[in-house]
Design a protein around this nucleic acid. Structure first.
Lengths: 133, 133
DNA sequence: CGATGGTGCGGGTATATACCCGCACCCATG
DNA sequence: CATGGGTGCGGGTATATACCCGCACCATCG
């Protein structure tokens, strides 16, 4: 066992590499995998507050806030307010919905490619391992 | 197979979680796992130029430049220049060496803990999978 | 009805990470 | 020796990510 291979560093490298792989596939849409995933979550949960969304995607609230603002500037999400004036209600715009539709086959493609490269068994192992960490 | 679990997002979550885990262990030293790993690489390769170091750790040169500058401000690395005035030669300071010595058991501890949690077989699988990606 | 605590948000700061551009310097070729 | 390509570096910009702080608002308790 080459104990000098840091699990964490290896994982970070893999994360960067895989991210850029997904980013490349989604490039025609003008969003990266982080933004695409966030859009999908907003779609699933809308309308939703920043705090709740952050909890769902397991990211810091301020991170989600900034990322959401970028999506708003792009016209992909709309931020309105409910009865409680404090609460920001995030939902998809029409463009956002369209982007998700156009993105679905691209995302499926990468996903399938990964699974093909690893094989079904190793894909299952990967999911299991990542959850176990 | 829940095909809606994005491999990439799962990997990124795992990466963040594991990073914060290592960061916690290294907190007494005042460095994070990225900095610690960079220090270990500098130790292994010193004296080394920015460009060469970036290639070795598979990060962007500008990223390594900024990170190195932080380490320099901390007094952990020294940056000198060789005959070619352009080239920055990065090496560890005495404090840097000391930090690596003090950090080794902490790093080993986390590493062992991960392996214990996963078991030998799954640890091997993980390394294999991450390299395969 | 006023004080208090909980919750939601934005801003500030720091680091990580990437890309592009421009400057400096070295070396080879004419 | 002049010019030009290659290489090394820093700066600028953008996003991702986290933490802390302060402000606003709501609900509840006294």
């Amino acid at each position: 066992m080459p104990s000098d291979t840091c699990h964490c560093i290896l994982l970070r490298k893999a994360s960067r590499k895989l991210s850029s792989y997904y980013d490349e596939a989604l490039a025609p849409l003008g969003v990266n995998i982080g933004q695409f995933s966030l859009l999908r979550n907003i779609h699933r949960l809308q309308p939703i507050s920043l705090t709740e969304l952050a909890a769902q995607v397991e990211l810091d609230r301020s991170t989600v806030g900034r990322n959401t603002k970028v999506l708003e500037r792009m016209g992909l999400v709309a931020i309105s307010h409910g009865e409680d004036q404090r609460e920001a209600l995030i939902s998809l715009s029409e463009e956002g919905k369209l982007l998700l539709k156009r993105g679905a086959p691209l995302w499926d493609g990468v996903q399938d490619e990964i699974e093909a490269r690893l094989g079904a068994e190793k894909t299952r192992q990967l999911q299991e391992l990542l959850v176990a960490l």
